[in-house]
Design a protein around this nucleic acid. Sequence first.
DNA 1: ATTGTTACATAAGATTCTTATGTATATTTA
DNA 2: TAAATATACATAAGAATCTTATGTAACAAT
Lengths: 111, 111
Amino acid sequence: MSNNQLYRGSLTTIIMRLLEQKGRMYGYEITQKVKELTGGTMDIKEGALYPSLHKLQSAGHLKVEAEKVENRVRKYYSLTPQGEKEAVNMMQELKDYMENMQAIINPKLSF
Amino acid sequence: MSNNQLYRGSLTTIIMRLLEQKGRMYGYEITQKVKELTGGTMDIKEGALYPSLHKLQSAGHLKVEAEKVENRVRKYYSLTPQGEKEAVNMMQELKDYMENMQAIINPKLSF
DNA sequence: ATTGTTACATAAGATTCTTATGTATATTTA
DNA sequence: TAAATATACATAAGAATCTTATGTAACAAT
């Protein structure tokens, strides 16, 4: 993902958010989109991505449809109704995380 | 730390930043300060804190001084010169992380 | 006398990631 | 045309970070 431990734990949030916005994406497309959006600094590894997608799927947050495009198989993922709720949840948790980190890093009148 | 995987990987950054600001803190004090700064939502577990402090110390980022206060031992940690540089580094990496997450979550003209 | 707080520590297990490896097709480049 | 790169999936072994559980020890409060 990056040679930085901070990214640890944020992959599922990223996947859920991209699918919330785009509706339907396949795995490889997600890696490319993230690379594009972060100017090349974030590089999602396949060894992290695919197990993560499978876990979200078996948790009932994603559904998958396999399609053959240009003689290659693609697995398109999208949010289930339950996944839509979970995506909203995860976005709130990311917001809370960011605010908490800001509160620690730039405390208001605490030091 | 929190029932949220996003916090995974941010403990060392938090420790380094608090020591950068306060100069000198002991383990238990760090847990209380973080609780205070985040309104009780972040709760650093001892099983995460102490191994993390030991690792930062053996990496040369922290130095430790044991003191007996009210008949109880405290281990005060502070940044080494090398640790000061590493703290600046970590703050930049946190900033980059936050910006990258923002770019994914709220993309500018990409969807 | 028991519970809660302060203060340290470590071990076992869970989770998430990296690295390595594998399969397969298509395109580009040397 | 052979080799390298890109596209597209997958899994296994090991690393890193965390939680849970447990332990020691002194002090305060109920």
